[in-house]
Design a protein around this nucleic acid. Structure first.
Lengths: 148, 148
DNA sequence: CAAATATAGTTCTATATCGAACTTTTGTCA
DNA sequence: TGACAAAAGTTCGATATAGAACTATATTTG
């Protein structure tokens, strides 16, 4: 059987790309948002006013992680948290104007990252890659849901 | 242009798979080694007695991260550190007997992870995926080396 | 309806991660 | 050779991350 090390490779890619992403953000004078926080803001740009449970699903982070990250994001003025009127257990996380202004710059950095990622690969290869990645993510999420 | 989010997907896959890996290790009664530490031990299994700089290359972690992780790994008895006779700046990291005994169990957990990862994919798809992953990693590493 | 259970978040504690600044040792070169 | 530069690690302070235990609210069920 062939030896596989997809998980190891993914860890390395994640490590290096986070470092580069953070450096690029700084080079664009984005000093009060890092790549980890950006992942959370990113999902809110796609769908604002989400509960923390929703963000757990969207980001694949634990609720403990999100809880503390949101404190920092709120302190930095990127999001605000309000309690859901209809269900007082829920917290609704919303973007502020400040974070909306960052969207364009963040998108530029993201695009630079994507260009770097996929340098030297064809559209077909990229399509196949992202499809496989999505498939792997589904496998993992299904597993995590089945044995909590 | 098509919207790409490979980096975002990879972050999520890394997040979920690390959580699952840690849970699997515990289920195998491996309580004094987690997945992050395992990544370091893993490269030492492939090539023992490496300097910390070598490990920076092999693991894609920063030297600051490795420095503190190795303290914990040494304290837990998984590795020992010795100063290179010929170059006193260098530290040589070596596996202990204890960590060698873990190799089989760790490999079992790794294989379970790989099976889960690639469930429902063909050998060809997996080959292509790992090749692309390797390509992306090369792109990133080259970039990081070029602008330090 | 009251008690039991489930859901949503927070807090606590520990590890992981990194950049920047630092020390020590080695290498270079005028 | 002596000063300067480069290389190898460590330390420090900050953020990221998660499991376990906890609080508060909502839902289910007898």
């Amino acid at each position: 059987m062939k030896s596989r090390e997809g998980g190891f490779l993914i860890s390395k890619v994640k490590q290096v790309s986070s470092r580069i992403f953070d450096k690029k953000l700084k080079s664009y004078a984005v000093t009060d948002l890092n790549s980890a926080q950006g992942r959370i803001i990113f999902v809110l740009w796609k769908h604002d006013d989400r509960s923390i449970s929703d963000l757990v699903t969207d980001t694949a982070l634990s609720k403990a992680t999100l809880s503390s990250m949101l404190v920092r994001l709120e302190r930095a003025g990127h999001v605000k948290r309000t309690i859901d009127k209809n269900d007082k257990r829920k917290t609704i996380v919303s973007l502020t104007e400040k974070s909306k202004l960052l969207k364009r710059t963040y998108a530029d950095v993201s695009n630079e990252m994507i260009d770097l990622f996929y340098q030297g690969l064809s559209e077909e290869q990229i399509d196949a890659f992202e499809r496989t990645l999505q498939h792997i993510l589904s496998n993992l999420i299904k597993f995590e849901e089945d044995e909590p």
